[in-house]
């Protein structure tokens, strides 16, 4: 065997070895990244855990949270009860808000007003807000659809 063949063989082996190594990495990299669970957690369509603690919500206040692709509103009534509704106004889909001074749920777009049961009481909204169930689980507030 002469030297050129040997060096060529060495080059090919190098290329193959390095290439295979790189390929294994390029295959394993996405697989490992895939296996590591994403931060957002698995999707749940039935309920959502809110990023607030129960006692950090003031009495007579409301907060907007995200439930799937829609906003929800969490209300702590003047009596201290937690309630949750879909925050999409039934009139033209604006996001509603809590009005502390009037103790109601209000849509700023066309002055639609809902009571603390989500029922449309004045202004253009044709239907009540969809009601969610809000409950406290330890230090967490969980809002669930239905029931």
């Amino acid at each position: 065997m002469n030297t050129p063949t040997n060096s060529r063989r060495g080059f090919v082996n190098c290329l193959l070895g390095g290439g295979f190594g790189a390929m294994v990495v390029s295959v394993l990299y996405p697989v490992v990244r895939y296996i590591i669970p994403p931060k957002s957690g698995e999707p749940t369509i039935a309920n959502v855990t809110l990023p607030w603690k129960p006692n950090e919500i003031r009495v007579n206040s409301g907060r907007i949270f995200r439930f799937g692709n829609q906003p929800g509103i969490l209300v702590k009534t003047p009596a201290g009860e937690l309630r949750a509704f879909n925050a999409v106004c039934t009139h033209l889909n604006c996001t509603v808000q809590y009005r502390e001074e009037k103790q109601d749920i209000w849509c700023a777009c066309h002055n639609g007003v809902y009571d603390l049961n989500g029922k449309n009481v004045s202004g253009p909204p044709p239907r009540p807000l969809e009601t969610y169930k809000a409950f406290v689980k330890g230090e967490q507030i969980v809002v669930s659809k239905g029931a």
Binding site: P30, V31, R33, Y34, I36, P38, S40, E42, P43, I45
Partner: peptide
């Protein structure tokens, strides 16, 4: 039926390289 579609959506949008797999 309730979750299949959502879970595949989760795979392709949220999971790293889920779209690829």
């Amino acid at each position: 039926a309730e979750e299949a579609y959502e879970s595949v959506q989760f795979i392709v949008t949220e999971v790293q390289f889920g779209w690829l797999i």
